[in-house]
Simulated scan of single mutants.
Amino acid sequence: MSYHVNERGYYGNFGGAYVPEMLYPNVEELQAQYLEIMHDPAFVAEFNSLLKDYVGRPSPLYLAERLSEKYNANIYLKREDLNHTGAHKINNTIGQILLAQRLGKKRIIAETGAGQHGVATATVCALKGIECVVYMGAVDIERQAPNVARMKMMGATVIPATSGSQTLKDATNEALRDWINNPVDTHYIIGSVVGPHPYPDMVARFQAIISEETRWQLKEKIGKETPDYVLACVGGGSNAAGMFYHFLDEPNVTLIAAEAAGKGVDTGESAATTALGKDGVLHGSRSLVMQTEDGQVVEPYSISAGLDYPGIGPQHAHLHVSGRGVYVSITDDEAMQAGFQLARLEGIIPAIESSHALAQLDKMKFNGESVVVCLSGRGDKDLSTYMKYFNL
């Protein structure tokens, strides 16, 4: 079975491009050209050069000794939190800004939840001198104020989404609306492995640098390229898609994705799509979507602004349904405790998103196995949430 996209833009039954007629030309232009551009030697050279000298890659693969001791495993953290801008998001925005330039686009739009993708988009637009507009839910603007300030500092216009739950889903709706109204000169840098084909595949390819590096780093450390377990958090799922990419066809590697259960899967305040979702179309692709009996999208909830999305990338839906990936639900409380634990054991404050993946360690039994956890972002943006939660 293939876990990669087919020529029609599908992963098994999931994917495709379900877009309004106005957007066909944009999406078709991307579909026709993205692979050719990405394989062009000049593109590859510029992309790799920026990842090295601007982003600071390769990101370290760190053996967390005290954490490992606690769980009786060899736990390695893939330190995406050490990238410029503080998360994995920059890998994708560097790739997409170079792509947009080659397509002759003069304006960039993006959506953001936790603000990290917005920051990463504002960053590359400043780097290349291109106009940048970021849509962000009004609720998220409030809870991620430091990131909003960073975007504005770099010249981006931040527009609040005030409909629905005023979070990531609504920001995405607004960004798509903008793209429909400005189809010729604007490129939409989608921040996750969601949206119409080719976005899920394109974003996964840009993020695949995470697992590409992990393989050779593991070889250096343990003498083989494959761990026993790979863990990552999933909202839309781009850090997980990148972390899993070069292990998809390694059946001995167990892939575990941690979704946000919020206050509990059955509380009505959750974002655990694989547990709660059904087949549906959201933001341009067919996937698993949290929805009511009559197909209305259910408002998601998570303490982490980056995971409260009511769907999941189509590749993740396929990995879940096919059984290749293990998709688990982690509550707010479990994630917060795991983040606190990492700070106390290793001196690393993780993003609350990443803490969901760390929390899964508590639910596993180890006997010296090697485990790689994608530490997708740093916790600076979440300090006020941590402080409030733990009364610090």
Rank of each mutant, 00 (worst) to 15 (best):
G268L: 03
E212Y: 05
T274A: 06
Y309N: 13
D308R: 07
R215G: 13
S270T: 14
H320V: 06
A260V: 12
R286S: 05
G235Y: 00
I222E: 11
T254Q: 15
G223V: 15
A208H: 06
D228A: 14
E299L: 01
K219D: 13
A257N: 09
K278R: 14
T274H: 08
A232M: 05
T292R: 01
R286K: 13
L276F: 05
P300E: 13
F244C: 02
H197L: 06
Q296T: 10
T226I: 15
H283G: 05
P200I: 07
D228H: 15
V203W: 03
C233D: 07
G264S: 04
R205L: 10
E293I: 02
D201V: 11
E293M: 02
E225L: 08
M202V: 13
I256M: 07
G323A: 08
R286F: 09
R205C: 05
G277W: 00
G311T: 12
A261D: 10
H283E: 09
P300M: 04
V289I: 06
I256S: 00
I210T: 09
P310V: 02
V203Y: 08
R324K: 10
Q296A: 07
S270F: 01
E220Q: 12
E299C: 04
P314I: 07
A272E: 00
V326S: 10
G277R: 00
S211G: 08
A305R: 00
G280S: 09
R215E: 14
A232V: 12
F247R: 01
R324L: 05
W216E: 11
A275Y: 14
A317Y: 10
I256R: 02
L307V: 13
V321R: 10
G323N: 06
A232W: 03
V297H: 08
V297L: 01
G262N: 03
L231Q: 06
A208G: 12
G284H: 00
H283P: 11
R286Q: 14
Y309R: 05
D249Q: 13
H320F: 11
P198H: 08
V265E: 10
F206D: 00
L307S: 05
V203I: 14
M290S: 04
G264C: 05
Q315G: 15
D228Q: 15
C233L: 04
P227F: 13
Q315L: 00
V253Y: 11
E259Q: 09
H197N: 12
A260P: 12
